[in-house]
Simulated scan of single mutants.
Amino acid sequence: MKGPVVPPVRVALAETVGALPRDPGRLAYEPKFDGHRMVMFRGAPGDVVLQARSGRLVTAAFPDLAEAALALPDGTVLDGEVVVWSGGRIDFAAVQGRAAATPGRAPALARRLPASYAAFDVLAADGHDLRPAPYTRRRARLEELLAQLGPPIQAVPMTTDPDVAEVWFGTLTAAGIEGLMVKRLDEPYKPGRRAWRKLRHTDTRDAVVIGFTGPRERPAALVLVLPDDDTPVVSSPLAPRLRAEAGAVLRGLPEPEGGGGTATAVGLGEVAYRSVPPALEAEVAQGTTRHTVTTVLRLKERSAPAS
């Protein structure tokens, strides 16, 4: 095997499918946690690094998970999702609020909105790179590493039985788990490639609004963060009704520290946007022609902002 796996790393990705794949004896099925993708590095004694999907280091934003990771053996690297549970459901807006927290606010948010880490892969153990190993070996090592830990770091459930997976798909939506991940048992971990498959109940997703373009009173587009990806995206232009509805909410929100940033808009490239706290969610549809276009279908105001 290769030497130590160090940040930043590229994560494995998944392609969306419209039906449950069935290939008995060759596939693994896992619930799809719509959280904040994170790679957890446990280095030398006392050393923990947390990396988002984009490669951004988010260790300071999740002090509770950084502390929990100290229980892992040196040389362990995990891939998984950060989730925050609220009322028995996954609260993605709360996760985004945690991820966007400044170092000064992060400890208080960790106490109010404790995070859990749903690990679904191990990239390294004992300092050795396990990415070339088949899924079966990596999964066995993951379960061995986490067997004695317990919350907040736990392995996601897994089955090789497609009938059990179908039951999961039909019953876990109440907890905010909107689909399944499907992986070949004999396949290595493939950084940056869509070798895995994901099945969702719908073609729509809930995203968190972190900013807007245009005037606050009638924004032209919203800047969004979607589950499993911390990179901001700019929506397609809002319909007139949504511009007025979004403006009514945005006028009541404070402007956080920093004021704004830049994000990629399809057809325009990098555009500047103004930031808002993660107090507003949007149901979005994503369609792909040459580029992925994110369209806002409706707004979902939160009653208790996560920030």
Rank of each mutant, 00 (worst) to 15 (best):
A115I: 03
A115D: 03
S116N: 07
S116T: 12
A118F: 11
A118Y: 06
A119H: 11
A119E: 05
A119L: 10
A119C: 11
A119S: 11
F120R: 04
V122Y: 09
V122E: 09
V122S: 08
V122G: 10
V122N: 10
L123W: 11
A125T: 05
D126N: 15
D126G: 15
D126L: 15
D126P: 06
G127Q: 05
H128P: 01
D129P: 07
D129Q: 09
L130K: 04
L130R: 15
R131T: 13
R131V: 05
P134I: 10
P134H: 12
P134N: 13
R138L: 05
R139K: 10
R139T: 07
R139L: 10
A140D: 12
R141Y: 04
R141N: 01
R141K: 12
L142Q: 03
L142A: 09
E144S: 15
L145W: 07
L146H: 09
L146S: 09
Q148N: 13
Q148Y: 07
Q148I: 00
L149Q: 10
G150R: 10
P151S: 09
P151G: 05
P151K: 13
P152A: 11
P152K: 08
Q154G: 10
M158C: 14
M158N: 06
T159P: 03
T160P: 01
T160Q: 13
D161H: 11
P162V: 07
D163E: 13
A165W: 04
A165Q: 05
E166F: 03
V167G: 00
V167K: 05
W168L: 08
F169P: 00
F169C: 02
G170V: 00
G170S: 08
T171A: 13
T171E: 12
L172K: 02
L172P: 02
A174H: 11
A175F: 14
A175R: 14
G176C: 07
G176E: 04
I177N: 00
E178Q: 14
G179W: 02
L180C: 05
R184V: 02
R184N: 06
L185C: 07
L185D: 03
Y189C: 03
Y189L: 04
Y189F: 12
Y189H: 10
Y189S: 05
Y189P: 04
G192P: 07
R193F: 07
R193G: 03
R193D: 11
R194K: 12
W196A: 14
W196R: 12
W196I: 05
R197H: 12
K198D: 07
L199T: 01
R200G: 09
T202K: 14
T202Y: 15
T202W: 13
T204S: 14
R205W: 06
A207L: 08
V208S: 12
V208Y: 01
V209F: 05
I210D: 00
I210Q: 03
I210Y: 01
G211P: 00
F212Y: 13
F212D: 01
T213D: 08
G214W: 03
P215K: 06
P215L: 08
P215C: 12
R216W: 02
R216L: 03
R216M: 01
R218A: 11
R218V: 00
P219F: 08
A220R: 11
L222Q: 04
L222K: 03
L222M: 11
V223W: 00
V223G: 06
V223H: 01
L224N: 04
L224I: 13
V225W: 02
V225Q: 15
V225P: 00
D229T: 15
D229V: 13
D230F: 10
D230M: 09
